[in-house]
């Protein structure tokens, strides 16, 4: 609590608190806020369950189409569920959270302290990302136990796909929040990415016209989805795997770079209400 290590007290100078400690502290506060916000809790806990159930019934109806595209029902339900978890638990939730913290000037206040901008955003994302990853593990385990055709053959690409997807969705939330006025409008601004990201989950790209398929391949979650699917089917060879992995990493990195200019999330709100100069 005091923030001093024994050595630093002996030297007479308190050691600067580390990035890890700062992010833990921010994550803890953000988790408390998540638990106290019913809308967020509903989005994070119940919505994924409902979407998986919906995905199951849709997949049953489309079983033939899916098979034509080389997908099994179990795999579609599981991978679709993972994408839904990322979109709901990480993307929607965090977009609203970032927008709310900016509106309340929490981000601006935090920027007056020791944490860097990256630490603030990452610390706040931590609870959602961890919650999403826990749900991913649960979902994969549950589908593997319940549906014979959804036992993953290659756990590593699956895990990497899930991890990179979650990180990418956190980054996307920062970008979306930069043009989202408040927590309520996040329900609108987060919809476009949400909808288009769901398409490749239930419609095999192979069945779509080439141009449309190419466009959908450019969606941020598609590389993650391909990685995760290969975890089940083992369908991707080394090169394809590397390509998908590389694409996912590049997307995460590019998203991060995009974030840098918008990171002063406080900026629009600050200037709007900072006030004096408008007087």
């Amino acid at each position: 609590m005091s923030g001093y290590s024994t050595t630093s007290v002996l030297l007479g100078v308190p050691m600067r608190k580390g990035a890890g400690a700062r992010m833990r502290s921010l994550a803890r506060a953000e988790l408390t806020l998540l638990v106290r916000n019913r809308t967020a809790l509903f989005t994070a806990l119940l919505m994924p369950l409902l979407m998986v159930a919906a995905g199951y019934s849709v997949s049953q109806d489309m079983a033939d189409d899916l098979a034509e595209g080389g997908l099994s029902v179990g795999m579609t339900v599981a991978s679709g569920g993972l994408v839904m978890i990322m979109l709901l638990v990480v993307y929607s939730n965090l977009t609203a959270a970032y927008a709310a913290r900016r509106e309340e000037r929490v981000l601006k206040r935090l920027r007056t302290g020791e944490p860097t901008d990256g630490e603030i955003l990452a610390g706040m994302a931590l609870p959602s990302v961890l919650l999403a990853l826990a749900q991913c593990v649960l979902l994969v385990t549950a589908t593997a136990l319940l549906m014979a055709d959804s036992v993953p053959r290659q756990p590593l690409p699956l895990a990497l796909g899930a991890l990179l997807g979650c990180v990418l969705m956190a980054v996307a939330a920062v970008v979306t929040a930069s043009f989202t006025r408040n927590a309520e409008s996040a329900q609108i601004t987060a919809v476009p990415l949400f909808l288009v990201s769901a398409v490749p989950v239930y419609v095999p790209l192979e069945l779509l016209p080439d141009t449309l398929a190419d466009v959908l391949r450019l969606l941020p979650l598609t590389p993650s989805l391909e990685l995760m699917r290969s975890g089940w089917s083992g369908g991707l060879d080394g090169t394809e795997l590397l390509r998908a992995l590389g694409l996912a990493v590049v997307l995460d990195g590019a998203g991060g770079v995009c974030c840098t200019p918008v990171v002063p999330l406080g900026a629009p709100a600050v200037n709007r209400g900072g006030g004096e100069r408008n007087a």
Binding site: G3, P14, M15, A21, R22, S25, L26, A29, E114
Partner: peptide, 11 residues
């Protein structure tokens, strides 16, 4: 205060 202390050196 706990959140802020966690982000502050020598709090």
């Amino acid at each position: 205060a706990r959140m802020w202390a966690g982000c502050t050196t020598g709090a």
